[in-house]
């Protein structure tokens, strides 16, 4: 079985497992790992882009908001490719947050009124084919599914 280390990620055939620190620089490390994983498995640039965007936005939210005031953070990412489908699981013990049902603020019109809040979650919902959230034992668990073939 091929076992390659890249960006601290371990590739066990078709799976990535990463433990993430509560630090924004981890986003870069995840994107590097997904790019390498995607290229190794022949994913299209479009599919890699979509997966990267969703993970970037979600991990950015966790690092920015989930652990205000406490330092005992556990963040784990698993990404698996099986039969043309990417299954990703993002687990964190931060504040409860359900990105599937979170209400999105109006983005506003024009340059002056335009807001960014909520845009990241909108991008996640646009680019993933399926999202399932649950809160379990003090952990947020978000499952994502993306069909790599319809991702273009």
């Amino acid at each position: 079985m091929a076992r390659t280390s890249f960006s601290g990620a371990v590739f066990l055939s078709d799976k990535i497992e990463m433990t993430l620190r509560n630090d924004i620089s981890e986003v870069g490390r995840v994107l590097d790992a997904i790019e390498a994983f995607g290229e190794a498995h022949g994913l299209s640039p479009k599919a890699i882009f979509r997966l990267n965007l969703a993970l970037d936005e979600l991990i950015t939210n966790i690092v920015s908001y989930a652990f205000e005031g406490h330092s005992d953070s556990h963040i784990e990412l698993t990404v698996e490719l099986k039969d043309g489908v990417i299954d990703a699981l993002l687990v964190d013990n931060g504040k409860p947050f359900n990105p599937v049902e979170a209400e999105l603020p109006e983005l506003g019109e024009g340059l002056e009124e335009r807001r960014i809040g909520g845009l990241g979650i909108k991008l996640v919902r646009t680019h993933m084919d399926r999202l399932d959230y649950c809160r379990e034992g003090g952990f947020n668990r978000l499952k994502m599914q993306m069909n790599v073939n319809t991702a273009g």
Binding site: P45, E57, G120
Partner: peptide, 20 residues
């Protein structure tokens, strides 16, 4: 540029406001 996230869009927006 091959990739941009909402954090990048925010910078484009703030730069545009600053220029304007």
């Amino acid at each position: 540029v091959e990739y941009i996230s909402s954090a990048g869009l925010r910078v484009v927006l703030t730069t545009a406001k600053r220029a304007k």
